[in-house]
Design a protein around this nucleic acid. Structure first.
Lengths: 200, 200
DNA sequence: CGGCGTGTTGGTCAGTTGACCAAATTTTGC
DNA sequence: GCAAAATTTGGTCAACTGACCAACACGCCG
């Protein structure tokens, strides 16, 4: 990589990272391009040179978040061949990234409405790959460990994602739980339930 | 009630309902006071007469959403005295309201960031009552039906709320599930788990 | 009937917004 | 070392924003 290209990419990174943080804190509409430029240490014109519109920034941010998610969860699940354990590893990693300093995943999940219909379709297509990977993990786990009768894997996926994604809303780094403990508990509740068998 | 007061309250209702719908669709910062006034069938000045600031509208909206939630869930759980069934009824009702035309609950859950710290504290205090009610329901259920060892009721509450609140993000009225079916399945997964006992 | 308070009108105001650009500057390939 | 390409600068522009208000209309009560 040339020196200029490296420099440009570093600026690009800083712009997206600053945008992610601001979008997370103030929302998309609540953040101005000048805010982003200032936080990224550049002038508004430079930002415009890299991204033609504000929505381009959001789209790029979300694509990066999806890539980051897929890559990390893929790597995390490679640590085991047991289908059930792989689901647990995926859940832990998903929560871990969501609660990390990488704000783009939070923006991906919660600033959905700000996209134009066209951009939303593009991101949805991209995100579909992540969901498909999750569905594969679940299907393999279900093939390996028998399910309760009537359990719907689509609902299980939405159930798990919902609980996991919501953690970003209430997690307190100074609280008594680590991201790993939370995801681990959630996995246990989801598989074994919370009641003792025969109760209720 | 006098005719004028009824008229005024109707306008108030229309303003809040219009604001809720727009905030849900475009977010708080993405919605202008003129948008709200137009959707409510009044002029910007009239809106200002009722609410001194845009944030006042959001606060009023959220307070109304909490009141609506508490009232409805309280009524729904009154239909049974079985502690476990009462949790199920609460979950179904929560999801039902979230997916109803009452957009204020959605705004309450997802436009949190837009409040100033002072307004946020006020809403948080108000919302705490709803969470306490949920915690009471869970504690009574736990006292009645023995839990698996190590189950943490705080995490169970966040688990359930997370899964339930996330439904608003993916629910499709034209899809194969009704809100009641979704909440019911979630309750089953949460209590009994998804795997057959002894599996895994 | 008549005056009063509640609510409405249609507009103003200063400040901010996203998009854009010509000129200056830096970096690259030859 | 030099011309071309890539990047940055510092600003402009029209459109929009939230807040606000003086003048006005209406229904209520005496």
């Amino acid at each position: 990589m040339t020196k200029a290209a490296a420099h440009a990419r570093a600026h690009d990174d800083r712009a997206l990272q600053a945008a992610a943080r601001l979008f997370r804190e103030q929302g998309y509409a609540g953040t101005s391009l000048r805010d982003i430029a200032r936080a990224a240490g550049m002038l508004p014109g430079s930002l415009h040179y890299r991204y033609a519109s504000k929505e381009d920034i959001l789209s790029a941010l979300m694509e990066r978040a999806i890539d980051r998610l897929i890559e990390s969860v893929l790597a995390a699940t490679a640590a085991s061949t047991d289908p059930l354990e792989r689901v647990r590893l995926a859940m832990v990693e998903h929560v871990r990234i969501l609660l990390s300093r990488e704000d783009s995943v939070y923006v991906l999940l919660y600033d959905w409405r700000s996209l134009s219909p066209a951009a939303e379709r593009a991101i949805a297509r991209h995100r579909r790959r992540y969901e498909q990977f999750a569905d594969e993990l679940l299907a393999q786990a279900a093939a390996h460990a028998p399910l309760q009768p009537g359990v719907d894997l689509f609902l299980v996926r939405q159930f798990g994602f919902g609980a996991a994604n919501w953690v970003a809303q209430w997690f307190d780094p100074k609280g008594p739980y680590t991201p790993e403990q939370i995801a681990d508990s959630f996995f246990r509740y989801l598989t074994l339930g919370t009641l003792r068998s025969g109760g209720g």
